[in-house]
Amino acid sequence: MLKHLRSLSGHQNPVYALANAAKAGFFFTGGNDKGVVEWSLEKMSFSKVLMPVKTSVYSLHQYENLLFVGQRSGELSIYDLSKQEVTANFQAHEKPVFDIVTIPAKQEFLTASEDGTVGVWSLTDLSLLYRIRVSADTVRAIAVSPDGLNTAFGCKDGAIRIYDLTDYSLLHILKQHTLPVTSVQYAPDGKYLISGGRDAQLNFWSLPDYQLQHTIPAHLFSIYGIAFHPSLPYFATISQDKSIKLWGSDDLKLYKILSIEKNTHGHTHSINKVIWSEDGKYLLTTGDDKLVIVWEWDL
């Protein structure tokens, strides 16, 4: 189902951020070596350094011709991919920016930070519209429901907080994880929300009522990413335990484990980010071993 295709080297330090590019066949990475890098899937190689940054890159998000770059310093940079230049750089938070999502229907974007707040910003003029005090500590991950009505925030205190995207009112506080929540994703079909945490558990919450339906002890250590295949009924999870796991999104069955400890190719250190290529042909993973590994979907 998934097989190792190529391990790409080039970063000198751990890699924390990964995002697809607007143009097919390219993607971006950022990490602890103070630069945002563009890669080519066609050539399976480094393409170019897009921009230097002052501190580590913790989050990347691409929307249309813009690449949002969240840094450890709390700064947010916006790189215009058509102009090939940084068009904005500002202090979005007092502490690191861990996640960024856009809400095109509202012409807004959200930033989550270690300072416990979420910034709601205008996509039109980049002005701050609201700053929501979500938690007393880090807000690590953001997910937006497929219908665009709700947003989920994964927090260091072990809670998932669900907000109404119409007026940003708090709807639910979900408490099941015993340690910080490190990843959240809505199923594309809108049937459930998945959360993963430092407790190595995957929790499945039904929609629209957000009732706990299933708990799976999915990994040995923190679950740092959950990514649904763009067209097939599968999702991948990654972990500090250096493994990648492929699950059925309908039956929640474990179909594949990719790990050097299972005698396959794999990462030698914590895996920090995972995405699928837009066409679903490749799974991309990256982490503390400084590598980007490209896995090919093999039916």
Rank of each mutant, 00 (worst) to 15 (best):
H4C: 12
R6S: 09
R6H: 11
S9R: 11
V15H: 00
L18C: 07
A19N: 01
N20Q: 08
F27T: 03
T29Q: 07
T29P: 01
G31Q: 05
K34V: 07
K34C: 10
G35K: 15
F46L: 15
K48W: 11
V49N: 12
K54Y: 04
K54S: 15
S59H: 03
N65I: 04
Q71M: 13
R72V: 03
R72C: 13
R72E: 10
E85N: 03
A88I: 00
N89W: 00
T102G: 04
P104I: 12
A112M: 01
D115Q: 10
D115L: 06
G116I: 05
V120D: 05
L123W: 03
D125W: 07
L129T: 09
R131D: 03
D137R: 13
V139N: 02
V139E: 01
A141T: 14
I142Y: 07
S145H: 00
A159E: 09
R161A: 08
I162H: 05
L165K: 14
D167G: 13
L170I: 06
L171I: 15
H177M: 07
T178A: 14
L179W: 01
L179E: 14
P180W: 14
P180C: 12
V181M: 11
V181S: 07
S183K: 09
K191R: 15
W205P: 02
Y210M: 12
Y210G: 12
H214Y: 10
G225Q: 09
G225L: 02
G225D: 10
A227N: 06
F228A: 08
Y234T: 07
Q240E: 13
S243N: 13
D250V: 12
D250L: 12
Y255W: 03
Y255M: 06
K256H: 12
L258Y: 01
K262G: 01
H269A: 14
H269E: 12
I271N: 01
G280W: 02
D288E: 11
K290G: 04
W297A: 15
W297K: 10
D298G: 07
